[in-house]
Design a protein around this nucleic acid. Structure first.
Lengths: 185, 185
DNA sequence: GTCTATAGATCGATAGAC
DNA sequence: GTCTATCGATCTATAGAC
C-alpha cells in the first residue's frame, strides 16, 4: 500500500494528541494504530523502540517547538516585555485556550517521569530560565526574577489542571491574563 | 487466613498511593495485590466494581479529608486568616512537602477525568469556594476573592507539577509561601 | 474473607511475505 | 513500508472450594 506518511515527523503530532488524552500508560498500541491509520509493523518501522521511543519523540517535538517559539523569543527579543507577551500568546495558542493539556506536565506527575526524567527536567528548566532572563532584563532583581518565573510557569500548569477539572477553558485564559500581570515591573 | 484488614477503609490509603505513583490507567491489579497483600478475590470482595470502584473510593477519601481538614476550617474559623494559614499548613503536610502529587489533579489531566468528572469537579470547586469565602471575610472584594482563590488553588497544583519535574520538593514549599502572600490583604 | 485456578480480552512486540 | 499472523505476557475479572 502507498504510504500515508512521508516521514516519521508527520506521525508525531498524532501520537502527542493520543498521549495527551490517555496519558502514557493509557495509550495503547491498538488506539495508536487506529488513530494513525498505520499497522503495528509500520509503527515499529518508524519507532523500533516501541512506545518508549514514541514517548521520547513526542516530548522532543514539544520541547523543540517551545525552544523555537517561546524560549528563543524570550531570550532574544530586543524588548523583554515583547518576548514575554509573545510567550503568553504562544501558550494560549499552543494549549488551545486551555482545552489541551501539557504533555510534559502530565508525564511529570506519575512514574512516567522516571522514563523521561531528562527531557521533562530540561523542558521546565529551560522555560523558567528563559523567562527569568527576560524578567531580569526588564528590571526585576535576580531573586524576584527567578521567583516570578517559577510562579508563572507553575501557574500555567496549574491553570491547565484547574480549567480541565471544571471543564471550563475560560478559567485558563483568565488565569494567564493575571499571571502576565506578575511579569510587569 | 486471618484477614489483614479490618475494613475496606484501611485499604484505601494504600490504593491512593498506588494510583498516585502509576496513575489510574497505569495501576494494575497485580501491583495492587502485591502492595495490599490481598488476593484478587479479596479485592473484588471489598470492591465489587473493580478498579473503577477503587478509584471512586480513593477520590471520595481524599475529598472527605479535605472537606474536614481544609474546607471546613476555611469556612468556620473565627479569624479567616487563621483558616487560610491552616489551609497552607495542611496542604504542605498532605502533599508531603511536595513529594506527593495530588491524586485529583492527576486524574483531571487525562481521560480518567471523564470517569470521575463529578468528584473531580466538586473537589476543586469546593476548595476554591471555601477559600473565596475566607478571602471575602478578610476584606477582599468579591471579584478579587474569586480570582485569588482560583490562582492559589491552581498555583498549588502547578507547584506540584513543577517541583516533581525538577525532582526538588523545596520548589513546592517555597511556592506555597509566595502563594500565601497573595492572600494577605 | 481468602484461597487457587483460570477465563477471555488486550497488551506490547515480532516474524516473514510482499 | 505495509501487510497478515501470531507470540507470550499481562490485563481485568470471575468461579468455586474452604
Amino acid at each position: 500500500m502507498a504510504r500515508r506518511f512521508a516521514e516519521r515527523g508527520e506521525i508525531v503530532p498524532v501520537l502527542a494528541e493520543i498521549f495527551r488524552e490517555h496519558g502514557f500508560a493509557g495509550a495503547s498500541l491498538s488506539e495508536i494504530t487506529r488513530r494513525t491509520g498505520l499497522g503495528k509493523s509500520s509503527l515499529y518501522h518508524f519507532f523500533p523502540g516501541g512506545k518508549d521511543e514514541m514517548g521520547q519523540a513526542v516530548l522532543d517535538d514539544v520541547a523543540r517547538w517551545f525552544e523555537r517559539n517561546v524560549f528563543q523569543p524570550l531570550r532574544d527579543s530586543e524588548e523583554p516585555a515583547a518576548g514575554i507577551d509573545h510567550m503568553f500568546k504562544a501558550s494560549v495558542r499552543f494549549f488551545n485556550s486551555g482545552r489541551r493539556i501539557c504533555l510534559v506536565g502530565s508525564f511529570a506527575l506519575d512514574d512516567t517521569r522516571d522514563r523521561f526524567a531528562h527531557v521533562i527536567h530540561g523542558y521546565f528548566a529551560a522555560w523558567v530560565g528563559a523567562l527569568e532572563a527576560a524578567l531580569r532584563r526588564s528590571g526585576f532583581d535576580g531573586r524576584r526574577a527567578k521567583e516570578v518565573a517559577q510562579d508563572v510557569v507553575a501557574g500555567i500548569q496549574g491553570a491547565l489542571v484547574f480549567a480541565r477539572s471544571q471543564d471550563d477553558p475560560r478559567l485558563f485564559t483568565r488565569a494567564l491574563k493575571r499571571l502576565q500581570r506578575l511579569t510587569e515591573p
